[in-house]
Design a protein around this nucleic acid. Structure first.
Lengths: 151, 151
DNA sequence: TGCAATTGGTAAGACACTCTGTCTATAATG
DNA sequence: CATTATAGACAGAGTGTCTTACCAATTGCA
């Protein structure tokens, strides 16, 4: 019967169903980034590239968007700064604050990650059907927004 | 349109769309487990409860199912053993191997986690519509199986 | 206007989870 | 029986997260 193993229901909890494809995706994206000359970029850095504003963002705002502590965000930013993906400069408008900004190299990573993610999405479309993949995305967006709104 | 913020496309990559709900789910499940007297159970332990066989499993098999190294799995099992969720005994059929088995307490956790996950799934059904939630699950299962089969 | 509370960020330390590399003992195979 | 493969243990490291405590700048209010 051509198809692989089947699983008892307990192995396909919602958690597993969300986590497994996320892992596959992350491996693809960060693996290809590493091979393309950005080996220091790790999955945890994703939130920085995702939430950073073009004019630069403050650490505390990035932390809030990513839902981690500002110390954790500072740690991520530090690593990215050390490897030349972002710059950190005093905020002219607030003496306490700093602005984190992508460098050209950082923007390359941002663009490439976006491209890779879309590539994987298209591959999955070929795998399960483009319509199904589009529906899956739409439903995930719906859920995402509903959860974000609820807090 | 009553709804809150909207997001640029770059903030709703497939990665974010899969990861965000997973985080919410994990927080709910492991938070409620902690409050119910199982505070040592952490998201990483999920794979043990998910893949362990009723007759017990070997560490190496759990590691393979979870797609982590046997050292990492041994570490997780050790913690669970220390807190009475599993027992580890020599495998009568193989002098090198050990069998990891759930204790009664471990089975409680397994059942409770399953119940909690289903509870959250129903809640999300109320949030985005039961039909949509059912479709979402079906599509995720489809993708999960397709990815598992491809390796 | 001046002081108290708030806010942005840092420092230090801890812990959880993952990996690589190495090792021993047992099993399987020629 | 000799070799190779397998199950697991041990040691060490790196990463990403948290908590607690702190400092310095800003805000706001009495």
């Amino acid at each position: 019967m051509a198809s692989g193993k089947t699983f008892p229901e307990s192995k396909r909890t919602l958690g597993a169903l969300l986590r497994a494809p996320w892992r596959v995706l992350a491996e693809r994206v960060y693996g290809e980034l590493a091979q393309s000359g950005f080996p220091e970029i790790r999955p945890a850095h994703g939130v920085v590239f995702r939430y950073i504003e073009p004019e630069g963002s403050r650490v505390v705002d990035l932390a809030e968007a990513a839902e981690i502590t500002k110390q954790s965000m500072a740690y991520l930013v530090q690593t990215l700064e050390k490897h030349g993906y972002v710059t950190v400069e005093p905020d002219p408008a607030d003496g306490r604050a700093k602005r984190v900004r992508l460098t050209a190299r950082g923007e390359e990573v941002q663009q490439m990650a976006l491209r890779l993610t879309r590539k994987v999405e298209r591959e999955w479309g070929r795998l399960i059907g483009n319509d199904e993949m589009a529906t899956l995305r739409a439903l995930l967006e719906h859920l995402y927004d509903a959860l974000a709104q609820r807090g």
